[in-house]
Nucleic acid binder design. Structure first.
Lengths: 340, 340
DNA sequence: CTGAAAGCGCTTACAG
DNA sequence: CTGAAAGCGCTTACAG
């Protein structure tokens, strides 16, 4: 602390750019913020000065003066802290980042804990961020609604189960599951089970309903359903359960690849040939789907695109754009491999 | 823009806290920053006022006035944009976040692109962040060295191959691989191969060298080595290669679970029983290790702890703590399942 | 232990 | 299209 200069942020200031370009600070600011009503001559001079000096604006000062945070938060509602290793989250993050590239918007990552939710709402509503992207694996999460009520612009990844007006982007889980069901029917399967996701998650219910619709179209029964968590072990337990109830089932639609992994193991251990005896279709198209034994037929969702679209929606909202869709569903596609 | 009040950050200011507590702004600031030389009476009054008003300080103003960013960057050097879905990255991120909890330090996520590296160095060295955590999967990456030379405090996750003075935290890959090798030897294996990682990554070389040392200890040959990328397909190709060269190999140490997945598939397809004919040991202990067929014996590294430790190192450095270790290796442990 | 005052580096009406 | 000036909300020597 003896050397004050060392504590000072290095680099030129807007002031110096103005001097070098022969204009006022106001004009430099306008150029930087790409405002209209700047002469081409002034603009060029400023750009050149910025380049020559290597100027980069102080974000804190911009935020303080502009009453804009230049920052959005990605909030992950953490269930047992396993979210981050989820490929879904990773894909969304990748998409968010890609969409933000080149914009002067920073991404701050926040995770909710059970106890600090009120703090988090206070923080996010307190102007530290301009808007919020949220990935909530748990549909009942009250946080999106609270933030929305607090006036924070928010876009949720995955349909929330509570809060009607909340903008979200999701994969079209219903139609993805419907397509999977139709495919199984088209290949001659008749006794088709489903390992569904949790009841408190929209993704679980939407995929279940899509499968149900497909069964109904074909006049097939929908009694063979077991709900399970999105883990291999739960998928395995569910598969064992289904086989005990109906040894003659000839297909199973598993609402997530990660559960399908467990289901494949159980089918293999019980001596069922895949797909000869039992056809298996998963959902998500994780990397592990293609390396499973046998390679898994599955419904592909593009989670990176989901992240990009969420970000696009939020930025549009922040820019005051008109006519943005309230919510969006992204198409899925069936990837046929060996398991069905 | 007609309603100016709407554009103003909501909530009370430090000024109001000072008034409510009956002290000056300076004193409130000191309390907030936990500085010494504040009377207990003043401290209590301030805390009470903060609570009553629901005050939360404006980070931008703190940053601007304090010449401190209150923010660290997590930089991910992106190779083909597949990094984010890597469980390694996810675990590190979780650890970083956990270690940051409760501190008034924000985490900004940045990804390097090929073309903007100079911009990134400029940005990170420009005082926008106080320090940098970096996860570079590619050991030759010049970025850590450049940042270090630019005076940016940095801690790297995973040993960098260039830049001697750079502080890093890594798992003890050498000893983990050594333990794996010793275990295979102890179970009577004699013709032991290894699928090694890429040569340009420290993690690849360290695990290879650990295995070599274990072989040397037992007087066994180290000729059966194939280098491969950390993907299931590359692991599969490497396994096929090894079997072609030495049909009688009785064990293989695979330097990453994700490659082991492919190796298991090839061994299975070629009719080798695991572990009866060929024992397989992986590295990492990913979730997929326990659900592989058969469940994979592997060397566990605690990547979340890696993230926590990186963060701890960086924060200590920023706080000017003395006697911090230059770099750290975290212990690994062998997890014995069915494959070996 | 405490307060008055300067200053961090921008943006933004306002007046021209 | 442009500039002078006020102000964003804090921190930090400085003086006491």
């Amino acid at each position: 602390m003896t050397d004050v200069a060392r504590n000072r942020r290095p680099g030129p200031r807007l002031e110096e750019v103005a001097r070098a370009a022969g204009v006022s600070r106001s004009t430099v600011s306008r150029v930087i913020n790409e405002e209209p009503y700047v002469s081409a001559k002034a603009r060029d001079a400023v750009h050149q000065a910025i380049g020559a000096l290597g100027y980069s604006p102080n974000q804190a000062a911009r935020t303080l003066a502009g009453n804009r945070a230049n920052c959005i938060a990605l909030v992950v509602s953490e269930q047992g802290s396993r979210v981050l290793s989820d490929p879904f989250f990773a894909g969304v993050l990748r998409g968010v980042h890609a969409e933000l590239a080149g914009r002067r918007v920073q991404l701050v990552l926040m995770m909710t804990q059970q106890d600090d939710e009120q703090d988090l709402v206070g923080y996010l509503a307190g102007g530290h961020v301009d808007g919020v992207l949220m990935v909530s694996l748990h549909g009942q999460d009250p946080l999106p609604l609270k933030l929305s009520e607090a006036g924070v612009p928010i876009v949720v990844g995955g349909r929330p189960l509570v809060g009607d007006g909340i903008r979200y982007v999701d994969s079209d889980n219903f139609n993805g599951a419907l397509e999977a069901a139709r495919y199984l029917v088209s290949t001659g399967r008749r006794r088709i089970a489903s390992i569904a996701g949790p009841r408190d998650m929209a993704v679980g219910m939407d995929r279940l309903n899509g499968w149900r619709r497909g069964m109904a179209e074909a006049g097939l029964a929908t009694d063979l359903v077991v709900h399970a968590d999105f883990t291999p072990d739960d998928g395995a337990a569910a598969m064992a359960d289904l086989l005990a109830r109906e040894p003659d089932l000839d297909a199973v639609f598993v609402a997530a690849d990660i559960m399908a992994l467990g289901a494949l193991r159980v089918l293999h251990n019980k001596g069922r040939r895949i797909p000869d005896d039992v056809a298996v279709v998963g959902f998500d198209d994780l990397m592990i789907a293609s390396t499973a034994l046998p390679p898994l037929t599955t419904v592909r969702q593009d989670v990176e695109q989901l992240g990009r679209t969420m970000t696009w929606c939020l930025l549009g909202q922040l820019a005051g754009e008109e006519g943005l869709p309230p919510s969006l569903l992204l198409p899925t596609s069936l990837v046929i491999r060996s398991s069905a």
